[in-house]
Simulated assay, not measured.
Amino acid sequence: MARKPTPLPQGHHDHRLDRISSPSLKNWGDMPTNPAAQAMQRDVVVECGWGRLIFAQTFEDPRKVADALRQESPGQRDIAFYLRDPHVALAHAPQELFLDPSHTFRLWVDRYRAPHRRPAGFVVRKIKSPDEAEQVNRIYVGRHMVPFREDFLWANRNSRVLTVLVAVDEASGRIIGVTTGVDHARAFDDPDNGSSLWALAVDPQSSLPGIGEALVRHLAEHYKACGRAFMDLSVMHTNTLAIKLYEKLGFERVPVFTLKNKNSINERLYIGPEPEANLNPYARIIVDEARRRGIAVEVIDEEANYFALSFGGRAIVCRESLS
């Protein structure tokens, strides 16, 4: 005879069920209809200084998600996260948007365990001066990342939605690492009670170990103290070292999709690998621009600089810049 499951004590909540049915993990169909989901704010966009986070789970219409992304300011890097039906949103602007090839990882903060020892040589805290905000931007530029807009970081240092943490070298006082946290509950009354980590960067000139890990840990501890349920982050699928670190800290991969704009900042993410052929400069100009526009390139004769361009069932053969 099958054993009946033990009933939950009165007042006890099964968080494992929440983790399976979490609205932020539902990437298809209609918006949830439970009271908490209905109470969250709609069409939420959070300004982060280096771009905007578009919380797609707060949008009922995928077209509006695509439209919001298309309003990206020059030099910024907007991100649409927690998409439902990402293929539908992408179909509204396939020439302008692309599905980001990153994985999403989630840390359930109640499972997080602080380390027995903290790394030495630096401390993690919030910024204390406009000069430190400038140092943060120098790190981002050195890492080929989008910096904060001028004065944004200092002006928003006391934000209840954004938390920017920096690692400070104790010997020199220099900023040697930075990350941004977003509190979803304060941003839009998130029914999942979540948070997320963005724009983690470490000064390439610093030789101190453990800076990135310490920033992740401090932000996780911050959101745990705030009572948040989880902290999410997005990482390139090829960044195996970072993925191993996150898994060591207790992060697990979750089915969350991200949409971004086809701009010069994101170019390497959507144009695919370069043709191995050694084309001359005139042919290379055409080939590179075609790849940026999503046009397939096939090199037919490398020595003669013949190549074919195909798009939407049509193809033309070119030699250098002539077709």
Score class of each variant (00 low, 15 high):
Cys226Lys: 11
Val161Arg: 04
Glu247Gln: 15
Met236Arg: 13
Glu247Ile: 03
Asp203Asn: 13
Met236Glu: 14
Ala167Tyr: 00
Ala199Val: 11
Leu215Ile: 08
Val178Arg: 02
Ile265Pro: 00
Asp169Leu: 11
Val182Ser: 07
Val166Glu: 09
Arg253Glu: 15
Pro255Val: 08
Leu208Glu: 04
Val166Arg: 12
Lys224Gln: 15
His184Phe: 14
Val202Gln: 02
Leu200His: 08
Ser206Arg: 05
Leu233Gly: 05
Lys248Leu: 01
Tyr246Ser: 06
Asp189Pro: 01
Gly212Tyr: 13
Leu165Ser: 10
Ala167Cys: 04
Glu247Trp: 07
Leu219Thr: 03
Ala199Trp: 09
Gly210Arg: 01
Ser195Phe: 12
Gly177His: 01
Asp183Trp: 14
Leu259Cys: 14
Val161Cys: 09
Ile175Phe: 08
Met236Asn: 15
Thr163Met: 00
Cys226Ile: 00
Leu219Pro: 03
Ser234Gln: 01
Ala214Lys: 14
Val235Arg: 03
Lys262Gln: 15
Ala171Met: 14
Gly210Ala: 01
Val178Trp: 05
Leu241Thr: 13
Ile176Ser: 11
Leu245Met: 15
Asp190Glu: 02
Asp232Gln: 08
Asp183Leu: 06
Ala225Trp: 09
Met236Lys: 09
Lys260Met: 14
Val168Cys: 03
Asp203Gln: 05
Tyr246Asp: 06
Arg253Tyr: 06
Trp198Asn: 14
Tyr246Thr: 06
Phe230Glu: 06
Ala171Glu: 14
Val256Trp: 02
Met236Trp: 10
Lys244Cys: 01
Val164Ala: 09
Leu162Asn: 06
Ala220His: 07
Tyr223Val: 02
Thr179Ser: 10
Ala201Phe: 05
Leu200Phe: 14
His218Gln: 15
Gly250Leu: 09
Ala229Pro: 00
Leu259Glu: 06
Ala225Phe: 10
Gly212Val: 13
Glu213Asp: 02
Pro255His: 07
Gly212Asn: 13
Asn239Arg: 09
His222Ile: 01
Gly177Lys: 04
Val168Gln: 09
Lys262Trp: 12
Ser264His: 09
Gly177Tyr: 01
Tyr246Met: 11
Gly227His: 02
Gly250Val: 07
Phe257Arg: 13
Thr240His: 12
Trp198Tyr: 14
Val182Gly: 10
Ile175Glu: 11
Leu249Arg: 06
Leu219Ser: 01
Val164Lys: 00
Phe230Tyr: 15
Arg160Ser: 06
Glu221Ser: 15
Ala187Thr: 12
Phe257Asp: 06
Ala187Asn: 06
Gly227Thr: 03
Asp192Pro: 11
Thr179Gly: 07
Gly173Pro: 00
Thr163Val: 10
Asn193Leu: 09
Ala171His: 14
Leu165Val: 02
Val256Asn: 09
Phe257Leu: 08
Leu215Tyr: 05
Thr180Ser: 13
Ser172Trp: 10
Met231Glu: 06
His222Ala: 00
Ile176Asp: 08
His218Tyr: 05
Lys244Gln: 07
Phe251Pro: 07
His184Thr: 04
Thr238Leu: 04
Gly181Ile: 03
Tyr223Thr: 05
Leu245Arg: 12
Val182Gln: 14
Pro191Val: 11
Val166Gly: 13
Gly177Met: 04
Ser234Val: 12
Ala225Leu: 13
Val164Pro: 03
Thr163Ser: 08
His222Gln: 04
Glu170Ser: 15
Glu221Cys: 12
Gly210Thr: 05
Glu213Thr: 15
Phe257Lys: 11
